[in-house]
Design a binder for these strands. Structure first.
Lengths: 339, 339
DNA sequence: AGCGGCATGGCAAGCGGTTGCCAAAACTTT
DNA sequence: AAAGTTTTGGCAACCGCTTGCCATGCCGCT
């Protein structure tokens, strides 16, 4: 036991050390540190002085055990390899830090089982979970939400706080943009089958296309990666559609690259649209037309909601299904339909 | 107390529950779970069966308190905004997960104080720290390493395990590449003043340039961001140098963009080189010549070393100053020097 | 038969804090 | 001056799990 200390690492002073040195009981030290109003001001000052002198730092682990509060939040993303999530991670990390919390980041590798297992495992060690792009079913999520504090990003489930970026209106704008350029046939390059967001995007696209009398079909699924873009491009070109709307920017960038390789001109021969406006979407060539959303903000908001739930002890906040704005960033990967 | 359970969240079964149900003592349950050899096989089986039936999951927090072992690692990066670190984070996360550990990710915002404070704060809650691009002084690092398990990425300090990507030879290759293209005057666009790696890169560049009789000067510091590239480009163009070597790819990409804005042709008027080969370096325009390194691998290796130190109880591993390969990825941002 | 040794399980003391409860002290109030 | 409050600090239990130590029972061996 106390292995750690054994190998010559400095032993941290505990409240017992401080108590002895200050001539008070450990409970007084504890109160002086975390509930100063509860002890006499001069006692508190003396304790504080001694604590500072000894370099006392409270052991958050020990504090967490009885109180159940860890000041730690966990964020799971479905694929840490996707730069899209870095915005989310950044936002969450930033906000967690601002609230004095530590953030755990985990990759669930597109697996609902891994999500569930991690939540079970980390349950007592964190104050709550943010799950971005969960691949679990609504039922599983609802069930887990009963036992843990949970907020969702890019996913909506009744009764569970969530934040998503607006997609229906945004997708409609994509279609209108394409329609106004004369496109009459669009192909949607699908991503992971379990992606809730992917399903919503396709629904919105199909609906908007129908409204404009444009043909829309979905092909895939494709791996939502740059590499996956090669297959997606080839398949898209095979459909004869004049515009391709990809599940996300990563896939769209892959399509761009494949087109360049194959000598297909974008947008002269094929217009390409993505989702997310990730790092790189504005400087690839041609720069990508994409539905931009505030994903960093979504990370921040999800953390905020989580902390609100925690601090209000289960009282549901008024606003617990947040929808963030999106806007269409029109760049050079879209252009007039070839005739 | 037990706030968490109060709000209707399911109470997790503890070893006491399992013990009662299985008709053994809690210590037997504990041993059955974490040290199966220590109890009779049939008892262990019974305990396991009951545990499974009750849905028992060990509370890692409670386990960590007496044992000192948390199976949690912390990774700090100097700027979580920099995509370069994505690779590092990915690699570390992956390896940590493979070893059954949880990863905490923190942004230190280029501040040595934040690094030190976080290490103090998290000390007892983690098994060790990986610090990428530490901005602390050698002395501070040495001091902290005495009290905590620590491994470094992109930084070398005597006596502290570290992994860096080779830079001296790589930088020499950059210079030779440029020299062979006829460049006689190079400008180095410096990044953060406290960056150890930045200092090494410049040293190597200056040395190699001298060896080739090429003029090299350093300007800056510039913010190592795409935005910072604008100022860097303007300053670089002011020097009359025909090639700019940027502190990192982010800055280099910013330079590329600024050049495009100003109508400066790359590489016809100015060759641009970066470091790191980040996501996007291969599809910006023109694609960036850059010194590629295995940064994902560095995250993985740093985690491995940390776990090795932990598991060998302080016995230094043979190989504790790892240097990973780098190679020059020559792309279209470099070309013959203008006359 | 007697005894050492080993396998097995329980007891209880932690790990480092937090907190309900109580008692003593210091003030108020009547 | 007696009785009632309010501070203030200490005691001890507890959070859930680990582990050193001991007691028991069974084995084999001389």
């Amino acid at each position: 036991m106390a292995e750690g200390r054994a190998e010559g690492r400095a032993a941290r002073p505990t409240i017992y050390d401080v108590a002895r040195e200050a001539g008070v009981s450990p409970s007084t030290v504890s109160r002086a540190m975390s509930n100063p109003g509860r002890v006499n001001a001069v006692t508190a000052a003396r304790v504080a002085e001694v604590a500072a002198r000894l370099g006392y730092r409270t052991n958050t682990l020990a504090r967490a055990l009885p109180s159940g509060r860890t000041d730690t939040l966990a964020l799971f993303v479905s694929d840490i390899t996707n730069p899209h999530f870095f915005g989310v991670i950044r936002g969450a990390e930033h906000q967690a830090r601002a609230a004095g919390c530590t953030l755990i980041v985990g990759d669930t590798e597109e697996s609902p089982e891994v999500e569930a297992r991690n939540i079970e495992r980390l349950g007592p060690s964190v104050d709550g979970f943010v799950i971005a792009a969960s691949r679990m079913s609504d039922e599983e999520i609802t069930k887990l939400a009963a036992g843990h504090r949970l907020t969702l990003i890019s996913r909506q489930v009744a009764g569970v706080p969530s934040v998503i970026v607006e997609h229906a209106e945004g997708t409609r704008q994509i279609v209108e943009h394409l329609a106004s350029l004369g496109h009459r046939s669009i192909v949607f390059l699908a991503g992971p089958p379990r992606s809730w967001l992917g399903a919503r995007r396709w629904e919105a696209l199909a609906a908007a296309a129908a409204r404009h009398g444009i043909a829309a079909r979905r092909i895939g699924p494709f791996a939502p990666t740059v590499a996956g873009g090669a297959a997606a491009a080839d398949a898209a070109l095979g459909t004869g559609a004049t515009a391709a709307v990809a599940h996300n920017d990563l896939l769209a960038i892959g399509v761009l690259r494949r087109c360049a390789e194959r000598g297909v001109a974008v947008p002269a021969d094929l217009s390409v649209v993505g989702y997310d406006d990730i790092f790189g979407a504005d400087f690839c060539s041609p720069p990508l037309t994409t539905l931009a959303g505030q994903f960093e903000e979504s990370g921040r908001t999800a953390v905020d909601m989580l902390l609100a739930v925690r601090d209000r002890h289960g009282v549901r906040p008024a606003r617990d299904q947040v929808v963030l704005d999106s806007h269409l960033a029109i760049r050079r990967s879209t252009g007039p339909a070839p005739r």
